[in-house]
Computed example of a mutant assay.
Amino acid sequence: MKKIVGYLVMAVLAIVILVGCGNDSSGDAKTAAKKSADKEIKIGVSAFPGWYTWYAVEGFKQFEKNDVDVELVWFNTYSDSLQAFNSGQIDGVCAALSDTISPALKGVDFKVVLVNDNSSGADGIVAQSSITSLEGLKGKTVATEIGTIEHFFLLNALETAGLKESDIKLTNMTVENAGPAVISGKVDAASLWEPSLSYAASDGDTNLLFDSSKTPGLIPDTLMVSGDLLKNRSNDVQKIVNAYFDGMEDYVEKPDEALAFMAKQADISTEEMATAMAGARLFSIKDNYEAFNTKAEDYSYLPYTAEKTADFLLKQKMVSTELSDPASIFDSTYIDKLYKESPDKNVPDTKKQ
């Protein structure tokens, strides 16, 4: 009888311990969930004028004013930011629309929720002064960062001149290295974005052959966010979108201060930043709303742009499969809500800076 009672006592104690452990586990799970909800949201940014605007948003403290904890993570090399996003190391990333196609085809869970700008001269091809036309690039050494928007832009530019990639000697370099390479004469030409573009076009015996003002709407610059962030912290995504446009209103009212925040990150003068920004057409809330929602058979409509971009990438064998549903890349929820509440918020006219 004593043994039986002993066994019963031990069993009861075991149940109590197990229940206690179960409660601790539940508590740990809740704590982990809360920590995840409170975790700083990391957004990858790299050197392109339309994306430096995020540093104006940060400088004007609009993340804090909108009650969202955001860290802007700087990447010297653009492709590194894409890899960090695709591997889940950061929650959002500034990306050209062309660079959303490959992740979509590979099943990366994300959506484009915001368009910062359209490149309107902020991307371009600079060549040695002896080369005076795109046709003159045939057989020449041209540097760019392979697999990125500049590679895509270069291929489009070549196509307008009846050339293809095999007609040039393509050299893989980051934009930061390609600019000095064309200035020094190590390469015949380079496909660049600002601020490297302005330096390369003015600092050497070079000339600007072609820029993105000749391909309007081809290069929308966007904010991609992860599916996990959309699912678990949708309210914070809305706050980020709100903060961005609040920051743009500050930019309109205090352009010198905004440019100073941006120039500090770029390590250039405010005057140089203003020059770089002249090639970016910043999108207002209304511009965003129309780009997401107003169907058109031209580059003003994001799904159309995605479809044509994907077709071009497939043709160039930069991707291996067709994009069956271009609209699936986009989520207009956050822009739609903001448009209904504040349709008239303004953005700077960068051409007048």
Rank of each mutant, 00 (worst) to 15 (best):
T160G: 08
A296M: 11
V347T: 07
K138R: 13
P220V: 00
L230M: 12
I149W: 00
D211M: 05
K138Q: 10
D80F: 03
V237W: 05
T53H: 10
S36E: 15
G136C: 04
L218G: 02
S213Y: 01
V45M: 08
E58N: 13
I219C: 07
K42M: 13
T222N: 05
G6P: 03
N118D: 12
F283D: 09
W193K: 09
L229F: 05
G179V: 07
T222Y: 07
R233H: 06
S79R: 03
S342D: 09
Y55E: 08
A104L: 05
S300P: 07
T275D: 15
F110C: 04
F60H: 03
E165P: 08
L72M: 12
L155W: 00
M10D: 12
T31W: 11
L8K: 04
T160Q: 13
S102D: 14
F292E: 06
K35I: 14
V112N: 04
A161Y: 08
Q238R: 02
Y299V: 01
I131W: 06
E249K: 10
F210H: 02
S87F: 10
M318L: 15
D298M: 11
A291N: 01
S191N: 07
V175K: 02
V182N: 02
V73T: 15
K337V: 04
Y289A: 05
A274G: 11
L259A: 11
D167K: 06
A260R: 10
A37W: 11
I149N: 12
T294V: 13
G27D: 15
L97E: 08
I219H: 07
N86K: 12
Y78Q: 09
Q83W: 01
A181H: 01
K351I: 14
L230D: 00
G247K: 00
A29E: 15
L208C: 06
C21W: 15
H151S: 07
M273F: 10
G185C: 06
Q128M: 06
F60A: 12
P326V: 04
G204Y: 01
K317Y: 05
L192T: 00
M262Q: 11
K39E: 14
N116E: 00
S25N: 11
E341C: 03
G204H: 02
V12R: 03
T31D: 15
L18T: 14
A84W: 01
S36C: 11
D228G: 12
I285A: 03
N288K: 01
K231Q: 14
Y78K: 05
I149M: 13
E58M: 11
G204C: 01
V126Q: 05
K39A: 15
N76Y: 09
M318D: 13
N232R: 10
A29P: 09
D311S: 12
T294F: 13
F283Q: 06
L114N: 05
N86G: 11
T132P: 00
L192I: 08
D24E: 14
D228A: 15
K34I: 14
A201N: 05
S226M: 09
D80T: 14
G44S: 09
L82N: 10
A200P: 02
F63P: 04
K231I: 09
A37C: 12
L259N: 08
Y7Q: 13
F245S: 01
A306W: 03
N156H: 14
V108M: 06
D250A: 12
A278L: 04
N86D: 15
L155I: 10
A263C: 02
A47L: 12
S212P: 06
V68K: 03
D67H: 13
M277K: 04
